[in-house]
């Protein structure tokens, strides 16, 4: 999937950098945009659509709230509210989750990972992967070290069909070697690293 675009909106440099160093630990390609003011947030949203906003809701100016809320709802952006005060609750912006300032690293990681994870799922259902499910299965078997004959027997197809599939896979992915396909399979979660060899 494409890189996850994350907005971090808070006035405090400490919070911005602290959060971003936690986000770095999540193994998903992403870009973090630091935003310092309500105006800036609005103008960012007017030009591009992030996947996730982590923002201190208190810092969003009253006059902007309605507009920002509309954009978030329209574009289905995940919104995590950053809260300093538990009692404060904005009912205008639909929050997917809340991070409290006294949360520990694991709690924060869990909250953000969950939101990013749900993004990935949506992404997968949205656009089908470049290779078909059948081809994915074959890549899986190749990565496990099976020969054409073994794959054919296992999937109840002819060797000839396996070869045709392999040709198509190579053409689509631009990867020819078995070890190259293995990396592809791992990167795309078709197999786990410990399943190889």
């Amino acid at each position: 999937m494409l890189k996850v675009q994350i907005i971090l909106f808070d006035k405090s440099v400490l919070i911005q950098h602290g959060l971003s160093s936690v986000i770095e630990k999540i193994p998903v390609a992403h870009t973090i945009h630091f935003i310092n003011s309500s105006d800036e947030l609005l103008s960012f949203l007017n030009t591009s659509v992030p996947d996730l906003i982590i923002s201190n809701t208190e810092l969003i100016e009253k006059k902007h709230i309605k507009l920002i809320q509309e954009i978030i709802e329209k574009e289905k952006i995940k919104y995590i509210s950053l809260q300093t005060d538990k009692t404060y609750n904005s009912d205008s912006i639909p929050t997917a989750d809340t991070i409290e300032l006294n949360s520990n690293e694991n709690e924060i990681l869990e909250i953000i990972s969950m939101q990013i994870g749900s993004l990935e799922k949506e992404d997968k259902s949205k656009k089908k992967e470049i290779i078909s499910t059948r081809e994915e299965n074959i890549v899986r078997e190749i990565a496990m070290g099976l020969s054409n004959k073994e794959i054919a027997d296992k999937l109840f197809i002819s060797q000839h069909t396996v070869i045709t599939h392999r040709k198509n896979i190579t053409r689509k992915l631009g990867i020819k070697s078995v070890s190259g396909l293995t990396i592809y399979a791992i990167l795309n979660n078709l197999i786990r690293m410990d399943e190889v060899e």
Partner: peptide
């Protein structure tokens, strides 16, 4: 050169940056 070609493609197309 085949494997080099694969490696390039993995980085260009599939490796999360």
């Amino acid at each position: 050169e085949e494997k080099l070609y694969d490696l390039k493609n993995i980085i260009i197309k599939y490796l999360p940056q």
